[in-house]
Design a protein around this nucleic acid. Structure first.
Length: 268
DNA sequence: ACACTGACCTGCGAGC
DNA sequence: TGCTCGCAGGTCAGTG
């Protein structure tokens, strides 16, 4: 499931592969992938160049000539750069014909991912209630303190709340709370200043390490493969049987509708 | 205002 | 073997 580090990896890999390329035409095979009118989407992108590659939270942002293309992979969205004669499968929902003869293909088995176009000056403030980036200095202990005031939700739900901080998903939320020795079900009302400092530091550390792990895939990419990160193979608690720190059995509990993995010994 | 639930989708594994 | 059921997950609309 792509979270911030995976989205960053996908973005940098695509930048490496298609920066400056022009879109000749767009084919939409599953219209619901496109927010808004798919025909207008295809028309607006024809002739546009991939100029600037940005990420905001889990959103991929491509600045073109006259429009901005925004893409969210949700759970299983992937991009492939292939030759047009390579066979399509039934999960390839949007095709972008490029000026060098290759094809950028969006593939999504669950069809949850979405993309849309908007103006060149798009900055997210009008459409999405996204919180600060984890690496932005605005994400600090004092910010957490102010944000959680009056709230009672579990810490896990707080970390998944994209208007609190942008880019964290279920896997990294579990890992961050494990690193902070906090149980996912703990109320955000009942943490200390020390915990707030830990959350900021461990969030950044874990995402940094994950981006670094994903970065290795950039150097080894092959043009016809989908891009994803590697860090998710290296979790302390998420989808683990035993705690990597103390060896205790990992517990699973549903919190906010998500499976949450934690060590009952290390996390209080 | 806050917190929780269900819908959107498909593939996969468990259980019968 | 073949079927059904439940689960996985990010976001948002809807509900209490």
């Amino acid at each position: 499931m792509p979270e911030l580090p995976e989205v960053e990896t996908v973005l940098r890999t695509l930048e490496h592969m298609i920066a400056g390329r022009q879109i000749l035409s767009v084919t939409v095979r599953w219209p619901k992938t496109i927010e808004g009118d798919p025909d207008a989407f295809a028309q607006a992108l024809a002739g546009e160049h991939f100029n600037v590659f940005e990420r905001r939270g889990k959103y991929l942002v491509f600045r073109m000539d006259h429009v901005t293309l925004v893409s969210h992979l949700r759970m299983e969205g992937k991009y492939y750069v292939q030759q047009p004669e390579e066979p399509l499968d039934r999960h390839m929902h949007v095709l972008f014909d490029l000026d060098d003869g290759r094809q950028l293909r969006y593939r999504d088995t669950r069809k949850f991912g979405r993309m849309f176009i908007t103006g060149l000056e798009y900055d997210f403030s009008h459409f999405h209630d996204l919180g600060p980036e984890p690496f932005d200095e605005a994400f600090c202990p004092a910010y957490i303190h102010a944000y959680r005031k009056g709230k009672t939700q579990p810490l896990k739900s707080l970390l998944l709340d994209q208007s609190f901080v942008a880019g964290i998903g279920n896997i990294y939320a579990d890992e961050i709370l494990s690193a902070c020795a906090l149980r996912p079900g703990r109320s955000c009302r009942r943490i200390t200043r020390h915990d707030e400092e830990n959350i900021v530091r461990e969030t950044r550390r874990i995402l940094c390490e994950a981006i670094a792990a994903g970065g290795t895939t950039i150097r080894t990419y092959t043009s016809s493969l989908g891009v994803s990160g590697l860090f998710q193979n290296d979790c302390c608690v998420h989808e683990q049987k035993t705690c990597r720190r103390c060896g205790s059995e990992i517990h699973i509990k549903r919190i906010g509708g998500r499976s949450s993995y934690y060590c009952p010994v290390c996390q209080k």
